[in-house]
Design a protein around this nucleic acid. Structure first.
Lengths: 111, 111
DNA sequence: TGTTGAATTGAAGAATTCTTCACATTACGA
DNA sequence: TCGTAATGTGAAGAATTCTTCAATTCAACA
């Protein structure tokens, strides 16, 4: 580890820590899309979406190509899909855990 | 998606967006550890580490067990390992990409 | 009981990130 | 060339997160 590799990792995860950015990545999982389409599916102002896309671009997670009047975005690497999948597994576990906790609480209340 | 599942995902990633928290998770990958040991390996004040551990606990990523005078932390789910691995793959790709970019720039400068 | 080491907590100012607004840019077609 | 749709950018106040400090809890032990 040259110096702060964990800092780079933290920055990377922080990039994912925004609902709009997450949705963009999930939409791009199915293939490239123009901004206009992203805008249709995500309820957010155009300038805000642009800001978030800029963050994703800076990090290198997505790449943009201008095609005439529109700009088409796509995932920079397919590995993003694995990452999102791993995150979903953990979230599922966590929610399941909460479900178990809830069941425990209910059983307790029923005594 | 019930309502803001992407919000939950974003919150989750944001939890990982801190160098100290990343290091804790990486250390716990090798097995449970008392706070004291974590403190030895991470250059940060005790109260700061506690704050970060609290964040990880709230999110449910780690669990803590008191053993006498010390508190031992461990990963709540082994899936975290997959997640960190996926992140490392992407970071590697990104750094490789930068290396290529660098090579391009050097070739360009050498013309 | 008093002390000490281990860890946590609450609170406040510092630092960072978000959202929004006004204003650029770029590409096209009237 | 004008007008307009599609995107992007800079900047500022709002909101969130970090760091640090003082104080607290808990357990072990003299």
């Amino acid at each position: 580890m040259p110096v702060p590799l964990y800092q780079a990792k933290a920055d990377f995860f922080r990039t994912l820590g925004h609902p709009v950015r997450i949705r963009v990545l999930e939409l791009l999982r199915d293939g490239p899309r123009p901004v206009r389409e992203l805008l249709n599916e995500i309820e957010v102002e155009a300038s805000n979406l642009s800001q978030q896309l800029a963050v994703l671009r800076r990090t290198g997670l997505v790449s943009a190509v201008r095609e005439g009047g529109t700009v088409v975005y796509s995932l920079a690497t397919p590995d993003v899909v694995d990452l999102l999948a791993a995150a979903r597994r953990i979230l599922t576990d966590m929610i399941t855990g909460q479900g178990e906790l809830l069941a425990e609480l209910q059983a307790e209340a029923a005594e």
